[in-house]
Measured scan of single mutants.
Amino acid sequence: MGFKLLSKLLVYLTASIMAIASPLAFSVDSSGEYPTVSEIPVGEVRLYQIADGVWSHIATQSFDGAVYPSNGLIVRDGDELLLIDTAWGAKNTAALLAEIEKQIGLPVTRAVSTHFHDDRVGGVDVLRAAGVATYASPSTRRLAEVEGNEIPTHSLEGLSSSGDAVRFGPVELFYPGAAHSTDNLIVYVPSASVLYGGCAIYELSRTSAGNVADADLAEWPTSIERIQQHYPEAQFVIPGHGLPGGLDLLKHTTNVVKAHTNRSVVE
Rank of each mutant, 00 (worst) to 15 (best):
G2Y: 05
T93N: 06
G169A: 11
Q61H: 07
A21S: 09
A209K: 12
P35E: 12
Y34G: 09
P221L: 11
A25R: 06
P138W: 08
P239I: 01
L159C: 03
S30R: 09
P41I: 11
S223T: 13
R76Q: 05
D85Y: 00
H154C: 05
F168Q: 04
L13D: 03
G245V: 01
N149I: 11
A15E: 05
A234C: 04
A15V: 13
T182D: 11
A144I: 09
R128N: 04
P41F: 13
I40F: 12
Q229H: 05
A90N: 13
A25H: 12
P107Y: 15
I84A: 14
G148C: 05
H241Q: 01
G72F: 02
L83R: 01
H180T: 00
A19I: 15
V121P: 03
A95S: 09
S113H: 15
P152G: 05
K91Y: 11
L159V: 13
H252F: 09
A215V: 12
E101L: 14
L81T: 14
F116G: 07
R120S: 10
T140Y: 03
E44W: 09
G78V: 11
G32Q: 14
R226T: 05
A133T: 12
V112S: 02
P244L: 14
G197L: 11
D216N: 13
S137V: 10
S223W: 02
T114N: 00
G242F: 02
A25Q: 06
L97D: 03
V45M: 12
H252G: 10
A200I: 08
F116A: 15
D164R: 13
S22G: 10
F168E: 02
H241R: 00
V187F: 01
V189M: 14
L250P: 02
G2R: 06
D64A: 07
D79Q: 15
S161V: 15
A87S: 15
D164C: 04
V194P: 00
V212T: 13
S193T: 05
G210N: 14
W55I: 04
F3Q: 06
L247P: 05
N184I: 02
H260M: 05
W220E: 00
N149R: 08
L82V: 14
I224E: 02
K102I: 08
G65H: 05
E157I: 15
R110F: 03
F116T: 03
T222Y: 06
S113T: 10
D214P: 15
R226E: 10
A19S: 07
A98P: 12
P23A: 09
L24A: 07
S193K: 08
I74F: 05
T254W: 09
S193G: 08
A218S: 08
H230G: 12
I227V: 09
G2A: 05
L96K: 01
I50M: 11
I84N: 00
Y48N: 11
E203V: 03
R110A: 14
I201Y: 00
L247R: 09
R141F: 08
F63H: 05
A111T: 11
R167I: 11
R128V: 05
A95Q: 09
H57S: 05
R167W: 04
P152K: 03
G2F: 12
A144H: 03
H260F: 15
E99Q: 09
V67Y: 07
H241N: 00
H154I: 09
K4R: 04
A130M: 05
P244D: 03
S160A: 14
P176D: 01
L195M: 07
L243V: 12
T109D: 11
P69L: 06
A259G: 09
A129S: 12
I224A: 15
V37M: 11
I224M: 07
V11W: 08
K4G: 03
E172S: 12
H260G: 11
S38I: 12
I40G: 08
D29T: 08
C199H: 01
G53E: 10
I50E: 04
A51M: 04
E145G: 11
S155L: 05
I186C: 03
D125H: 08
Y231A: 05
A94D: 14
V37N: 07
A25G: 07
A130T: 05
I201L: 14
R142L: 10
L156F: 10
S137R: 12
G105P: 09
A95V: 11
M1L: 03
G148V: 10
V54K: 03
S205I: 07
K251I: 05
T207E: 12
Q61E: 07
P41D: 12
A19T: 05
F174C: 03
A25W: 07
L96Y: 00
N92R: 13
K102N: 06
Y202S: 10
T182L: 12
P190L: 08
G240T: 00
G158Y: 12
F63S: 09
S181V: 12
I238V: 09
S193M: 08
H230Q: 06
P221E: 10
L73E: 01
Y135L: 07
A129Y: 11
D214K: 11
L195Q: 00
P244N: 09
S139D: 14
L249Q: 02
I20E: 05
V11Y: 15
L83V: 13
L195H: 02
S162T: 12
V166S: 07
E267C: 03
V266M: 06
H154W: 13
A130E: 07
S193D: 13
